[in-house]
Amino acid sequence: MLSLCIRDMLLIKNHWKLILGYPIFALLVFSKLNASPYVIGAFMIVYLMNQYYFYYDEKNKSEKIFVSFPFRRKTIVQSRYLSLIISCLVAFILMAIAGLIAINFDVFQLQRWVKAIDMVQLLLMTAIFGGLSLPLYLRFGYSKMRAINIIIFFIIFFIPSIINGLINEVSHPIIETLKNILIKVSSYNGMFMSVLFSICILLVSMLIASSFYERREF
């Protein structure tokens, strides 16, 4: 499985300059949003990296080769989920480094450096995005699912900003309840539950994707 994840990393090696430069752009653009620029920026990187993996598979029809290699189909599916998690970690580290540089040089008017809650939020967003999109990609391929995945991405991308905006600007019992939930999420217990929830989403999604992929014909 590790060789499949290494493959994913090698596939995007021509795009590392863009991926490394992206955090600076993300901090510049998203620092004025209600949501954490670290989470939004990192999520964009996760999305980009995963798009590249599937784009190259589709462009070269390379799944035919990998299914012909001595890999279980289940292993191929698992490797895509592992690559998703790796991309999440890489994106977070890149945003953290960019944030550190920006704060030291006092640019982009950043109010704070990364926090644990950023990582939890990023993991949750990644899990929801991957949980929905990976089974579709693995079942139908990149080109058929691109439009649907862009919609999934934008829904997940804008939800934190919308929620933060609502909390800060609207007074309503439902919003108050949401606020309380988010305060709880910010606590250690809440963060633990969010991580657990993210893992559950990914596991269920992986089971569905595996059953799709087992039946797929190349």
């Binding site: 596939l11 190259y56 035919k64 080769i65």
Partner: peptide, 11 residues
Amino acid sequence: VYDENYFYVDL
């Protein structure tokens, strides 16, 4: 060996 190349062409 298949009838056409399925390896990643950019690698």
